[in-house]
């Protein structure tokens, strides 16, 4: 049983790390602000889900797992919201004057 849990959590760690790594590469390699955010925001949520899920499997049925669940819920709510706020600010800024694409392409 504990072996299965270990394998499961390491699998989740691996998936999470891979997804987060892909996100980091995307942030560095993508050409414009919006595509960079696309890379960062999606992978952020999935990566956090996988990594925290892996830690929760390690924690088992305990208070720590509950706390991790609270952190996970917090991240799942705030991470897309902050991405939305950032994209929205970039859009409003673009309407006002300079284009975010040009700034990001520097």
């Amino acid at each position: 049983m504990s072996l299965a849990l270990d394998i499961g959590s390491w699998l989740l760690f691996g998936i999470g790390s891979l997804v987060l790594f892909i996100g980091a590469v995307g942030v560095l390699r993508m050409p414009t602000l919006y595509t960079r955010m696309h890379a960062a925001s999606l992978t952020d949520s999935l990566g956090a889900l996988a990594v925290l899920g892996g830690i929760m499997l390690q924690a088992g049925w305990s208070l720590a797992a509950l706390k991790l669940l609270a952190i996970l819920l917090f991240l799942l709510l705030t991470s897309p919201t902050s991405s939305y706020a950032l994209a929205n600010a970039a859009l409003l800024n673009a309407e006002g004057g300079s284009k975010p694409d040009e700034e990001a392409a520097q």
Partner: peptide, 15 residues
């Protein structure tokens, strides 16, 4: 006028 931050903020502030 920004629905998403407002709703999420309302959800989170009590916590």
């Amino acid at each position: 006028h920004h629905l998403i931050p407002r709703i999420v903020g309302k959800l989170l502030i009590p916590f």
